[in-house]
Design a protein around this nucleic acid. Structure first.
Lengths: 352, 352
DNA sequence: CTCGGCGATGACACCGTTGTCAACGGATCG
DNA sequence: CGATCCGTTGACAACGGTGTCATCGCCGAG
């Protein structure tokens, strides 16, 4: 019980060593390190040489302690295991890394309380900024952030001066539904999760609007909003196909659900049912027929969000960074299932 | 240009505030915070009350600077966007979080130099430990770590005193191949990537051994080791099926490749070809026929690795943590494609 | 020639915490 | 009864940087 913590020897040379070697004071070395003003070019060169020859690297902890911020960005998503968010995280990481920032990653598991705790802990860590997929628009408040720049992704978050990077959920859901209507469908089922997320609501809204504008009845029995995993999605698919007046097309509100819908259709041997999936997924262009999707690219959202955050970080002027809702263009990728024509209606059949 | 850095006000109460409120010295408060020895229970209680009432939270940066380590674990994987690694990361994060550690995540993109840079930067950050999927067994050296505990995942890393958590690649590849042989196949194709990773080599080795032990010729034209993405996998599938003496079964060395193989077989209408995939994937049990896989569970590897690392971290004795190669049991999950029988051979046909 | 101003530089305190060591008082021991 | 020991506590320095302010020349203006 003599030496409890055999203090690891970590640090290489310190700024003090650099200063000594260059024959200047600690503070001057610090000025060079931070591109401070008022350093003669001779001095600057001497210090830089010293840094070079010692292979000096600044200590992030010390810098963070004194300066009040460090080169780390906190990223909070629903779950890093989810395909959408892992792709998002991968892109965020690569963009931020290029700008010299590391990523501190955490999953909120869609729990609002946990989400707030994580953000607060990131702020205490003096992260330079945070990127959050908020559970609800108000799950994070300005007080939690204590001035730390934030950018919301995938869903809108309400914090003064913060940007939210989202795709146009209602608009693209509208497009997707209209695409199905354009192929003659009148019985279009909606599959969605039961969560009260803005994303979910927006997609349902787009669906409704498309039907209404086309003069098609919004049938309650076709709206299935209890699909919270793949197997329940499969069940709902069976039900809408077994109705007296069955669905001839399906609009699936998320790629997670589509992962249940596609196998279900294959299993039932119903490759004649049209389908558009909100969200691309791994085998979408490989199954037969290939699945038409709305690509609300995680990559593009991440790229935009990372750039928005960087604009709020030094050396930029935080006041001039983007603000409010930024809609990232999404696009419909026709691959097959979305272009399956509706079967002839009774009227058409009797007319023939 | 007056106030360049409008110093963010972050910290809540400090330990000094707690000490003052409790009427003790700073050091005593620190002792209570760290469960230090030799604190009377009355004092301890007073300090804890003070912490409670101030909602005190320790400052990670200061602690890290002074103590030489913090409650953060660095995680370095090939790519956080890869399904295998995102699942791995998700599990690591949840286990480590439960133990009070955060995750600093970075992708090496399979570049050895970058991998080493990332690890060194993590060490400079005073991470409590790191978890690495090493590009090569020697990509990380003890010198890079400077004493920071490390656990390797998915592939073996050679560092004195470090553990590597891997699945039994040769053994499970052997099992998978034997499984196909047991269903009468004699023309089993191998699809693998071209990388010289120990994982890849091990799986090829298991395949060869199974064939040899069964007295089946190891045919070069059936070994396809240039599959580095889904589309090249598709191409190779077509080629082995088009041989004069075609493959009747396929052993796919990774889930990424299977994501190309399955659509290819469906597209060619060849659902009579047997298939075992090393690595489970999202729609494996949903496509028709469902895909037989070797489940070298990312979850299980992550769980084991996280526990191994925790055993090397305080309050445990680093000397007693696990060491060397730890093999996580994998298992063959028969789902359909692996149990497709070989078509009758010419001999059998003529005999009939 | 003298003084104000400005560029360059350094001394020093400080960020919030933990390690070292010394001090103190009561209990035990010779 | 004095020496010793141990449990408890606190003063102080240190971790590695950055902010503040003072200092020192040097130059041009008055």
């Amino acid at each position: 019980m003599t030496s409890l913590t055999p203090r690891r020897r970590i640090s290489g040379p310190t700024l003090r060593d650099v200063a000594a070697l260059a024959g200047v004071s600690l503070k001057t070395a610090s000025r060079v390190l931070n591109d401070g003003p008022n350093v003669s070019s001779a001095t600057r060169q001497a210090v830089q040489d010293a840094m070079e020859s010692l292979a000096y690297e600044p200590d992030p902890a010390a810098r963070s302690l004194r300066a009040g911020h460090d080169r780390t960005v906190g990223v909070v998503v629903d779950s890093i295991g989810d395909i959408f968010f892992s792709e998002l995280a991968a892109t965020l990481e690569s963009v931020l890394d290029a700008a010299g920032y590391s990523c501190l990653l955490a999953s909120s598991n869609r729990q609002e309380g946990r989400e707030r705790d994580i953000v607060r802990s990131l702020v205490r860590r003096r992260c330079a900024g945070v990127i959050v997929a908020p559970t609800t628009p108000a799950s994070i408040s300005a007080a939690d952030l204590a001035g730390t720049p934030v950018v919301f992704v995938d869903r809108v978050g309400h914090v003064e001066g913060a940007a939210s990077v989202v795709s146009d959920d209602p608009g693209m859901a509208f497009e997707a539904t209209r695409h199905l209507l354009a192929h003659g469908h009148r019985r279009v089922a909606l599959l969605s999760d039961s969560l009260d997320l803005p994303t979910t609501r927006g997609r349902q809204e787009g669906y409704r609007r498309a039907l209404t504008e086309a003069g098609v009845e919004v049938a309650p029995e076709l709206m299935r909003m209890e699909c919270d995993d793949e197997s329940s999605a499969m069940r709902q698919v069976r039900q809408v196909l077994d109705l007296a007046d069955p669905a001839t097309a399906i609009f699936s509100c998320s790629s997670r659900l589509s992962l249940g819908v596609v196998p279900a259709l294959h299993q039932f041997g119903r490759t004649d049912v049209a389908l558009v999936s909100f969200g691309d997924f791994t085998m979408a262009d490989s199954v037969q027929p290939a699945v038409t999707v709305v690509d609300h690219s995680a990559r593009r959202i991440a790229q935009t969000a990372a750039e928005a955050l960087l604009a709020h970080l030094p050396p930029h002027d935080p006041a001039h960074g983007p603000t409010g809702v930024i809609e990232v263009p999404a696009r419909l990728i026709p691959r097959g299932t979305g272009e399956i024509a509706a079967p002839p209606t009774r009227q058409q059949m009797s007319r023939a």
